[in-house]
Amino acid sequence: QVNIAPGSLDKALNQYAAHSGFTLSVDASLTRGKQSNGLHGDYDVESGLQQLLDGSGLQVKPLGNNSWTLEP
């Protein structure tokens, strides 16, 4: 069960990665100043990332080996 409060997208993504045990490689300029609506409930990694990114204009991309990145 994930419980991440709304706020900074950077912070939300870092909390989610730490909670879910995956690696997220992101260029900080992509997420700077963006906000997230947070995340509450049970999600697989990709669904949770998509939910956190909702409205940010960013997309999640798998890199393999439980690693992910973001792209515009």
Rank of each mutant, 00 (worst) to 15 (best):
17 A>T: 05
33 G>D: 09
44 D>M: 06
29 S>G: 10
58 L>K: 01
55 G>C: 09
47 S>H: 10
23 T>D: 10
56 S>G: 00
52 L>E: 00
40 H>L: 11
65 N>P: 13
3 N>V: 12
40 H>E: 09
1 Q>V: 13
66 N>S: 06
28 A>R: 11
4 I>P: 00
54 D>S: 13
22 F>I: 15
53 L>R: 00
8 S>L: 10
46 E>I: 14
1 Q>Y: 15
57 G>L: 04
35 Q>M: 15
8 S>D: 14
23 T>E: 11
7 G>K: 03
66 N>M: 07
32 R>P: 02
39 L>T: 03
41 G>Y: 03
20 S>H: 15
28 A>W: 13
70 L>F: 06
56 S>K: 03
30 L>C: 10
52 L>W: 02
66 N>C: 09
7 G>Y: 00
6 P>M: 06
5 A>Q: 10
40 H>I: 14
44 D>C: 08
66 N>P: 05
47 S>A: 12
9 L>F: 01
1 Q>S: 13
72 P>M: 11
39 L>N: 00
8 S>E: 10
55 G>W: 03
58 L>Y: 02
54 D>L: 15
71 E>T: 11
23 T>K: 09
71 E>C: 10
3 N>D: 11
37 N>T: 08
65 N>I: 08
32 R>I: 12
23 T>L: 11
67 S>I: 14
62 P>E: 08
17 A>N: 03
32 R>V: 11
61 K>N: 05
26 V>M: 11
1 Q>H: 15
13 L>F: 00
6 P>Y: 04
59 Q>A: 11
5 A>V: 06
21 G>Q: 07
54 D>N: 12
71 E>I: 14
62 P>L: 10
15 Q>K: 07
18 A>R: 10
6 P>G: 08
21 G>E: 06
39 L>R: 00
54 D>Q: 15
25 S>G: 05
9 L>T: 01
15 Q>C: 12
52 L>R: 00
51 Q>F: 10
10 D>Y: 13
36 S>A: 06
57 G>R: 03
50 Q>V: 12
65 N>G: 11
34 K>Q: 06
5 A>H: 09
37 N>P: 14
22 F>S: 05
32 R>H: 12
4 I>Q: 02
66 N>L: 05
65 N>T: 09
49 L>Y: 01
47 S>P: 04
67 S>V: 14
68 W>D: 05
55 G>H: 05
72 P>V: 13
67 S>N: 12
50 Q>M: 13
36 S>T: 15
25 S>T: 14
21 G>N: 09
56 S>P: 01
47 S>K: 11
47 S>E: 12
15 Q>T: 09
11 K>R: 13
55 G>E: 03
45 V>R: 05
61 K>Y: 08
54 D>R: 15
64 G>F: 04
6 P>H: 05
62 P>Y: 15
56 S>Q: 06
61 K>F: 08
70 L>P: 04
17 A>F: 05
23 T>A: 08
25 S>A: 11
6 P>Q: 07
36 S>K: 00
66 N>A: 04
24 L>Y: 09
20 S>K: 15
13 L>K: 02
18 A>N: 10
41 G>S: 01
33 G>Q: 05
34 K>A: 05
40 H>F: 13
64 G>D: 07
15 Q>Y: 09
65 N>H: 08
51 Q>C: 13
9 L>Q: 01
19 H>R: 08
38 G>W: 03
30 L>R: 00
60 V>L: 13
47 S>D: 09
21 G>F: 06
66 N>E: 06
32 R>A: 14
53 L>I: 13
71 E>F: 10
51 Q>N: 07
38 G>K: 01
6 P>A: 12
30 L>M: 08
31 T>A: 03
54 D>C: 15
7 G>S: 07
29 S>R: 11
56 S>T: 15
21 G>I: 03
21 G>S: 05
57 G>A: 04
17 A>G: 05
35 Q>P: 06
63 L>T: 11
61 K>C: 11
62 P>S: 14
33 G>W: 05
27 D>K: 06
4 I>W: 01
22 F>D: 05
16 Y>P: 01
28 A>V: 10
4 I>L: 04
39 L>W: 02
45 V>G: 04
47 S>T: 12
14 N>T: 13
14 N>Y: 13
17 A>E: 02
49 L>K: 00
33 G>P: 00
28 A>E: 13
40 H>R: 13
48 G>W: 07
35 Q>T: 13
39 L>H: 00
19 H>A: 14
51 Q>P: 00
24 L>P: 06
38 G>L: 03
7 G>I: 04
4 I>E: 02
40 H>S: 12
19 H>Y: 12
12 A>H: 02
58 L>P: 01
9 L>C: 04
31 T>G: 03
33 G>I: 01
56 S>E: 00
72 P>T: 10
62 P>A: 14
27 D>C: 13
18 A>V: 11
46 E>A: 12
19 H>V: 14
60 V>W: 08
17 A>L: 06
10 D>P: 03
10 D>E: 13
13 L>C: 06
37 N>Y: 09
26 V>A: 09
47 S>L: 08
33 G>T: 04
3 N>H: 14
13 L>H: 02
58 L>F: 04
67 S>L: 11
3 N>G: 03
